[in-house]
């Protein structure tokens, strides 16, 4: 039931975004992909989410050939840096979206969906905001809604692309702690992309430091911090 990423490569035109990235993570782990911009971390995350296609390599997750599945059947919750909330829907409709689009036989009843929305809003600590529109929320609140929306589908995997990148330092710290709490509560395998090494090391069980489309070093935060394997990693940690 673990996540195995095996030499995944991707080129955009002639520019190689990923150059054979590999790592193995246990079921329910919290993995941070960290590195400077252009290191391929977002591309790798989007490949895991099915929003981008790999040129080569394979991903196995929960005994599934993950890359052969289209995004909509992967059941992987994705949280975007710019929230990507549905701007014409209320918070409740945003969160319920993934449940409402299910085929009739697997779609929960209306009352159940309503109940689920309420629970999720409590979980992300925004109780009572059901009827608001995204434009009436602060950045931090929007990202909490986006997180609730991704969790509503009871995802097999939670993917976060610089989710706190657009927020100020105080809100970042709060959300980071909440994300960890929610992850531990839901027990879902989580891959978290950030360029902020402090954030990556503070929140994750396993850290993959990326550079030029490869994983430079992979391991528990304390191990990576204690034994940086390359000059790049030690410089990146010092920055």
């Amino acid at each position: 039931m673990s996540l195995t990423v095996d030499s995944v490569s991707k080129k955009f035109g002639r520019f190689p975004a990923l150059n054979g990235a590999s790592f193995v993570a246990p079921q329910g782990g919290f993995i941070s992909l960290v590195g400077p911009s252009g290191s391929g971390k977002t591309t790798l995350l989007r490949i895991l989410g099915g929003l981008e296609f790999a040129d080569a390599g394979s991903v196995r997750f929960a005994d599934l050939n993950w890359l052969d599945m289209p995004a909509r059947t992967r059941n992987a919750g994705f949280v975007f840096q710019q929230y990507a909330l549905f701007r014409h829907m209320t918070v409740a409709d945003n969160i319920a979206f993934g449940l409402k689009v299910r085929p009739r036989r697997t779609r929960p009843a209306k009352a159940d969906i309503q109940q689920r929305v309420k629970e999720l809003l409590d979980l992300v600590q925004l109780p009572g905001l059901e009827e608001r529109y995204p434009s009436q929320l602060s950045g931090g609140q929007r990202q909490r809604v986006a997180l609730a929306r991704a969790l509503a589908i009871e995802p097999r995997m939670l993917l976060l692309d610089e989710p706190f990148g657009a927020l100020d330092a105080k809100v970042r710290k709060e959300l980071r702690a909440d994300l960890r709490r929610i992850h531990d509560h839901a027990g879902v395998t989580t891959v978290f992309v950030t360029h902020d090494q402090e954030e990556a090391f503070a929140v994750a069980d396993l850290v993959a430091v990326m550079k030029d489309g490869r994983i430079e070093q992979y391991g528990a935060p304390s191990d990576v911090r204690r034994n940086p394997r390359t000059a790049f990693v030690s410089e990146f940690l010092a920055a």
């Binding site: 989410g49 099915g50 929003l51 289209p70 995004a71 909509r72 059947t73 992967r74 059941n75 992987a76 919750g77 994705f78 975007f80 990507a84 909330l85 549905f86 979206f97 993934g98 689009v101 299910r102 986006a146 929306r149 991704a150 509503a152 589908i153 993917l159």
Partner: peptide, 9 residues
């Protein structure tokens, strides 16, 4: 993209 990851056709 968000809709696709949430399972919409």
């Amino acid at each position: 993209e968000a809709a696709a990851t949430l399972g919409a056709s």
